[in-house]
Amino acid sequence: MFEARLLRGSILKKVLEAIKDLLTQATFDCDDSGIQLQAMDNSHVSLVSLQLRADGFDKYRCDRNISMGMNLNSVAKILKCAGDKDTVTMKAQDNADTVTFVFESPNQEKVSDYEMKLMNLDLEHLGIPETEYSCTIRMPSAEFARICRDLSQFGDSMVIACTKEGVKFSATGEIGSANIKLAQTASVDKEEEAVIIEMDEPVTLTFACQYLNYFTKATSLSPQVQLSMSADVPLVVEYRIQDIGHIRYYLAPKIED
C-alpha cells in the first residue's frame, strides 16, 4: 500500500505545472524515504530531478517500493481539478496498475477522487555525480524568471557570466543585444530578496533560453532560486520546496563548434 497525503495540496499542483511543459511522461519512484522523479526532456538536453521527502507529507506510508509511470499531461489535468486549499492524497495498492488522487476541501464537504491508469515506462536513469561548483548564485526566483523572459526576446541563447562583482546575463540577436547585471546584495535584510554569490572561480557559460524559460515554471514553488555553475558542466537550477524537498533542473551548456 502506498499513500501520501499533503494538506498543502497546491504544492503538487505547482510541481506538475513546473514539469509538464518539459516532460511528457515520468516515473514517480516511491520508497519509505519519499517520492523521487528523474527524467530527461525529449531532446535529452535537460534533466529534471524532483525529491519530496516522506517527512514533508502529513501522512506517508509506503510498504513496498513502487514505481508509478505517469503521463504528466493526464496528471496535470487531474490536479487542475483540485482546489488551491484542498488536501491532496495519492494512493495505490501494491502492484497496482492505477493510482488514485483524492481531493478534500478544507471543510471536508467536498471529496473527489480521480483514478488514473499507470504506464510501464522504460526510461533511462542517469547518475548525477557529486560536484563542487565554482559559482553558486542565489537570487529571487521572480527576478530570474523576469530575466529569462526579457532576454529570450533577443536571442535563442543566454550567456551567464559570474564573477565576484556580480552576475551578468546577456543575449544577442537580430534586433541587437541586451545585458542585465546583478550585483551581490550589500546588506541582507530579507534573505528572500537578496542576490548572494559564492565564487571560487569566475565562470561564463551559454544556455538555450527555451529551457531556462521552462525551468522558471517552478517560480511559484519558492521565492528563491539557486544557480550552480562550473566550466564545461551542466547548469543546476534549484528551487527548494519548503519543508518537503526540491526540484532541480540540469541543463547542458551550448559550446563553440
Binding site: 530527461m40 535529452h44 536513469h125 542517469l126 541563447s157 551559454t206 551542466p234 547542458a252 551550448k254
Partner: peptide
C-alpha cells in the same frame, strides 16, 4: 554554437 545533450555529461545508471 552547438547544443550538447545531458547524456554527454551524466552516464546511465
Amino acid at each position: 554554437m552547438s547544443q550538447k545533450t545531458i547524456t554527454a555529461y551524466f552516464s546511465s545508471r
